[in-house]
Computed example of a mutant assay.
Amino acid sequence: MYVYIYNGGRKEVEVDMSFCNEIKKRFIRLSRGQRKVAQFVIDNPNIIATHIASDVGKLIGVSESTVIRFCYAMELSGFSELQERIKEDLIGAKNTDIGDHPLITKKQEPLFSNVMNRDITSILNTIQLVEENQFEQTVKWMHESNFIYVLGFRHSSPSASFLSNTLGNYRRHVKQIQHDVEDIVQQISGMDEQSLLFVLALDAVLEDVLTITKIARNKNVKIVAITNSGLSPIREYADIVFTVGAQKQASAETIIASHSLIHSLVEGMVAQNKRQYTTFQKSNAQIESNFLFLEKTKII
Rank of each mutant, 00 (worst) to 15 (best):
L103C: 09
A49N: 07
H101F: 11
I120D: 06
D97P: 02
I23D: 01
L30Q: 02
S18F: 13
P45W: 00
C71V: 05
L103A: 14
C71F: 03
R29N: 15
I42P: 04
N114Q: 12
R85T: 03
K94V: 12
V115A: 07
S80P: 01
R69P: 03
G99V: 13
R26A: 08
P45M: 09
D100L: 12
R26G: 02
F79W: 05
R29V: 00
V15H: 06
G78V: 02
L59Y: 10
I52S: 10
I48L: 05
R26P: 00
E12L: 11
A49K: 10
V15C: 10
K58V: 08
I123P: 01
R26N: 09
V56N: 04
K24T: 09
S77Q: 12
I42A: 07
R118C: 05
I104Y: 06
G99D: 14
T126S: 13
N95P: 00
D43K: 09
I68A: 03
K58W: 04
I120Y: 14
S80Y: 06
F40D: 02
E14V: 08
T50L: 10
S18Q: 11
D119R: 08
S31H: 07
F70M: 00
V115M: 11
Q39V: 01
S77V: 01
D119M: 14
G33K: 01
F40W: 07
N21V: 14
V15M: 15
E64T: 08
G9K: 13
D55F: 07
V67H: 02
V13P: 06
G8P: 04
V67T: 02
T126N: 05
M116V: 11
D89W: 09
G9A: 11
L76W: 03
L76N: 05
M116T: 15
G61S: 03
N7A: 13
T50Q: 12
